[in-house]
Amino acid sequence: MDGDDPRLTYRMARPETLSIVHLDSFSAVYHRASGITHLLAAPAPEILAALGEAGQTLPSLMARLGALYTLEDADAAALEARLDELVACGLVSCEPGL
């Protein structure tokens, strides 16, 4: 995935396609579109919540997460890797920005 492009927009899967249950430090996510259950550890649930339906570019997501949480190791490459994992399992979509 060409994550170097800051115009790429990442969006959480439509909320009606997800059922998210917070268990402890993990969250169980049922993805209705695929019928697959995912068990997510931090920061994946936080990333999903911060993306929202409107979507975020990588820089804007980093800024939003920084506003919501104390980021001890803010690292765009690491965040991009987490996003790519979420894209790979279908919980996040990635589109070229306008």
């Binding site: 268990l23 402890d24 430090s25 993990f26 169980a28 068990l39």
Partner: peptide
Amino acid sequence: VLPSEVFV
């Protein structure tokens, strides 16, 4: 046992 471990 934590809920996440029970779930798995």
